[in-house]
Design a protein around this nucleic acid. Structure first.
Lengths: 143, 143
DNA sequence: ATTCTAAATAATAATTATTACGAGATAATA
DNA sequence: TATTATCTCGTAATAATTATTATTTAGAAT
């Protein structure tokens, strides 16, 4: 199964029609370059598919979100950032830039689950737990 | 020291001129009604101080933020929400509404600190750790 | 207490980000 | 290949925020 077939399969599995626009947007998302905005996606795919409309990008991202193909990253900014990675993970927010990196740690997840099963919030049902880690790389680091 | 004096002191301690507008905005914030937007604050204080300008509210909140009097809550929405509580805490995000509640737990903080001092992120200096807890209160709960 | 001045405010324009709308195009099924 | 519900494009409308600027003011210096 080639990439296009895979992408088609993702869409149909989510119960979505496989249109050219959706395939291209999904493809752009799968490149996963730092939690893009709608505008980021638009500019990126505009090159290979110039007739795409910005409103289609917005619209499609919202449809993807509703169908669980992307999530919105909680940020302090005015612009919505999307996350194509839907399995459990956390985020590093780099101060001094708007970069956001994924942080995976299974042990952390276990630790949190354990903590919250011991320390239940009265009458509250937890559906998602995410740690936001703010900070910065020291000088050594170049990315 | 009455409330007004206290508020004045907060401003001057932060190195800010104590203007009427700032005092009123700071006062409104201290009521802390569910992590307000700029618009929320504006509408609230407009009653007691009708000559206030929306731009002053935006401007003042940004100045407060720069001086550490408020923080922005990371959300998935387009509208910025402010948090007047500057000491360490976490957030409950209520699904099915836009309510955000504070969650304090010293043990959780210790647990996280311990975890991340054992599991350092290479070359990364953590400045803030926040847990975002998404979920909902079950039917019993009325608030 | 008055004067001075840098900073703050109000009003409004401009910009940015997103959503709404409707006419035409298209994917999926028969 | 015909049908039709859905999708896309282009643009208008709205929402949220930021920029601009003339006027006002808090607080320091007289």
């Amino acid at each position: 199964m080639n990439k296009r077939e895979k992408l088609k399969h993702i869409l149909s599995s989510a119960g979505l029609k496989a249109t050219v626009q959706r395939l291209i947007i999904l493809d752009a998302l799968s490149d996963n370059y730092n939690h893009p905005t709608a505008e980021n996606i638009y500019k990126k795919i505009k090159k290979e598919y110039p007739s795409i409309s910005l409103s289609t990008v917005y619209n499609t991202l919202e449809i993807f979100r509703k169908h669980g193909l992307v999530r919105i990253v909680n940020t302090d900014s005015v612009t919505v950032r999307y996350d194509p990675v839907t399995d459990k993970h956390h985020h590093l927010f780099l101060e001094d830039s708007s970069k956001i990196e994924d942080y995976y740690n299974n042990e952390l997840d276990k630790l949190l689950n354990k903590f919250f099963s011991k320390n239940k919030i009265p009458n509250f049902e937890i559906n998602d737990l995410q740690v936001q880690i703010k900070g910065k790389y020291n000088k050594l680091q170049t990315n």
